[in-house]
Simulated scan of single mutants.
Amino acid sequence: MKGILLNNLGSPDSTDTKDVKSYLGEFLMDERVIDIPYWKRWLLINGIILQTRPKKAGAAYKKIWWKEGSPLVVISQRFTDKVIKKVDLPVALAMRYGSMTMEKGIKELVDKGVTEIFLAPLYPHYAMSSYETVVVKAEEILAEKYPQVKLDVLPAFYNEPDYIKAMSNNIANHLEGFDYDHILFSYHGIPERHIMKSDVTKNHCKIDGSCCERNSVAHHTCYRHQCFETTKEIAKALNLKEGTYSNSFQSRLLKDPWLKPYTDFEIEKFPSEGKKKLAVVTPAFVADCLETLEEIAMEGKDEFLKFGGTDYKHIPCMNDNDDWVDVMVKWINDWRNK
Rank of each mutant, 00 (worst) to 15 (best):
D326M: 13
G309T: 10
L175W: 07
E108Y: 01
P12T: 11
I48T: 00
Y123D: 01
S248E: 05
P257Y: 13
K18G: 12
K301E: 14
Y38T: 10
S198N: 09
F270Q: 11
W42K: 15
G189K: 08
Y38S: 12
N169A: 07
L175N: 11
W335Q: 07
P124N: 11
P316Y: 09
W324V: 02
L24K: 05
H188Y: 11
L9W: 06
L44I: 12
E299H: 07
I45K: 04
M298Q: 15
I171A: 02
L122Q: 05
D13A: 10
D199M: 15
D19C: 13
P147L: 07
R78D: 15
G113E: 02
F249S: 04
N169P: 00
K276D: 14
I34W: 09
D264Q: 09
L89C: 05
L50C: 10
E160I: 06
N159P: 07
S272R: 13
D323S: 08
D311Y: 02
K236M: 08
D16C: 14
M328H: 15
S168V: 08
K145V: 10
K2M: 04
N319K: 06
A218S: 14
V135S: 06
T201F: 06
G58D: 07
V73I: 09
L184D: 05
P161S: 14
L253N: 00
P161G: 08
S168K: 15
P147E: 12
K232R: 14
W42Y: 11
L305A: 03
N7P: 06
K40P: 00
E132H: 14
D111M: 10
C289H: 15
L278S: 10
K63N: 04
G274Q: 11
W335F: 13
M196K: 13
D35K: 06
I332M: 05
D311V: 12
I296L: 06
V329M: 09
C211H: 08
K137T: 10
E139G: 04
D111P: 04
A287L: 00
R336P: 01
D311P: 01
K236I: 05
A120Y: 07
V20T: 06
N46Y: 14
G105R: 06
K275E: 02
K165E: 15
A287K: 10
L290E: 01
E303N: 14
D323W: 05
K137D: 11
F157M: 02
G10Y: 00
L5F: 03
H219E: 07
F79R: 07
L278H: 03
Q51T: 04
M328V: 09
D111F: 08
F118K: 12
K301H: 08
A284D: 04
E140Q: 10
Y245K: 10
I332Q: 08
V33G: 00
K112D: 01
K206H: 14
G113T: 02
K104H: 13
I171L: 01
K260V: 14
D19P: 04
T101H: 08
H220F: 10
A166Y: 00
A138P: 08
L305M: 11
